[in-house]
Design a protein around this nucleic acid. Structure first.
Lengths: 156, 156
DNA sequence: GCTTGACCTTACCATCATGGGAAGCCCTAT
DNA sequence: ATAGGGCTTCCCATGATGGTAAGGTCAAGC
């Protein structure tokens, strides 16, 4: 199997397959005399594993751990479960951060009449800070993590 | 005010202030004869605006739009509101994606007894795919976005 | 046999916002 | 004068991914 076919049947782009090889996440593929990478169904299975783990939000680093456990016959399922629980916890944190942003934005958007006039509580909040808001919107927020560094949250 | 002071009173790191200047998000600061950047309270206000917008998850690109509106006296609040609503929509999408991951992970973790034995439904799912799962966990998921490319979701 | 087009190879660059560090200049206090 | 801290610019790294360019390879059709 060439890399293109392996890509199609694993759902991992050829680019990423080469990348995973370069960082040592997967073993270096065999080569034809012409230098083409060659893949077996076993390799495709490995790639699918990685693909699914990525779909669950695991970082490549965590996937390395998962792969090591997968290939370790004497693994303890508790170790796998712990990685999963950590992943859940990380997702929870980021969801909560984004939820807090969304709540704030919703309050602001609700307070903005959104017409032709220039007056806008959204801009007012950005200029003066949340503590000078239009009155509401501080009682119903318990402890939004506005301090310290905000988590990076741009889509990319 | 030197950059250090401006940084402290705005909450934006000196590094980022220079970066924002380099990409044209903020105007180039004045300089002392020695080449030190000089900031006024007006500049600090601008930096605080940016800082708060970042805390709400806005990308630098969106902040550029917000700043343009802020400085446009004939702006329409509807334009600001639209940007906020887009931001909310984007956050919603990403939250839903992460929520779907979390739900799947929770199902898997619940099914994993997490003891010393190697048998693990989490690994089994990663190997065989969700369609060969241990029975449950497909009826109560309507249409998790497993197809196409997963959104990048690693913390950084 | 030769051409064409699809596929593969490596190598480099870009993303996005941020931090780290080095080399060197400047200012202030002792 | 010297020490220490702040400032400057420049380069590099992150994480996972895509894009592109220059060149080699393979298979099918003429």
């Amino acid at each position: 199997m060439n890399i293109g076919e392996a890509s199609k049947s694993s759902g991992v782009s050829a680019k990423m397959i080469r990348y995973y090889e370069s960082i040592g996440l997967i073993p270096a593929a065999g080569r034809t005399v012409a230098g083409y990478r060659v893949y077996s169904m076993t390799d495709v299975q490995l790639l699918r594993f990685i693909r699914r783990a990525r779909d669950l939000g695991f970082s490549v680093e965590k996937i390395e751990e998962l792969l090591a456990l997968w290939q370790d016959r004497s693994r303890q399922s508790a170790d796998v479960k712990q990685i999963a629980l950590e992943q859940i916890a990380g997702l929870e944190v980021r969801i909560r951060e984004m939820q807090a942003m969304m709540d704030t934005l919703r309050h602001l958007a609700d307070a903005c009449c959104g017409d032709h006039r220039p007056d806008c509580p959204i801009l007012a909040d950005l200029v003066n800070g949340p503590d000078h808001g239009s009155g509401a919107r501080e009682e119903d927020q318990q402890s939004a993590p506005r301090s310290g560094k905000a988590a990076g949250l741009q889509a990319h």
